[in-house]
């Protein structure tokens, strides 16, 4: 899963925000590795979310993977690095996720169906060809966001807060 992208020569690549850590606690190897894999893991988590309806994955699993990406970032760079990566309060993804999931249900209700009744559309998108979208996707995205919010919250309270 590692990214073969070459690293800038010169100054050692560092995680944004990691300079707030004591020099003793910093690890060049860890920071570099996290810098390399962080975005890849996030993209992978999105893939899991999108592919989940037909292959292993889904919102919960995707959310956990994304959460673990943030865990890595926190372990390598401390809470400042985590804050750089996610400059919002954990409550934001939590709330957004709940609203999205519940909103999917309510939308079905407004469209004359039952609460959370599913619907699907097939779109012919340029480049991607025929794409099938179901109402499960926004719902699953809600699950994804809640799980990410949970992990961020735990990182912030049990991790970052306990640091002080």
């Amino acid at each position: 899963m590692t990214d073969p992208q070459p690293v800038d020569s010169g100054a050692p690549p560092r995680l944004p925000g990691a300079d707030e850590l004591d020099a003793v606690r910093r690890s060049v190897v860890l920071e570099t590795a996290v810098r390399l894999v962080f975005h890849t893991i996030l993209v992978f988590s999105l893939y899991l979310l999108l592919a989940g309806h037909n292959q292993p994955g889904g919102g919960f699993v995707g959310g956990l993977v994304a959460g673990l990406a943030f865990v890595l970032r926190y372990i390598a760079g401390g809470r400042a690095a985590l804050r750089e990566a996610v400059p919002v309060d954990p409550g934001v993804p939590l709330g957004l996720g709940l609203v999205l999931a519940a909103g999917t249900g309510v939308t079905a209700l407004l469209l004359g169906g039952q609460f959370l009744e599913s619907g699907k559309v097939e779109l012919d998108l340029p480049l991607l060809g025929i794409v099938k979208a179901t109402s499960a996707l926004p719902f699953d995205t809600g699950v994804y966001l809640v799980v990410v919010g949970l992990v961020l919250g735990v990182l912030r309270t049990l991790g970052a807060e306990a640091e002080r």
Binding site: A101, S118, A136
Partner: peptide, 25 residues
């Protein structure tokens, strides 16, 4: 009905969607 071939996921987000909503709450 669910428009997906991953049954586990379809159960989670569709057949048992209400449960999932409760769980994420």
């Amino acid at each position: 009905d669910g428009g997906g071939s991953n049954v586990v996921n379809v159960v989670l987000v569709d057949f048992r969607g209400f449960d999932t909503l409760g769980e994420i709450t």
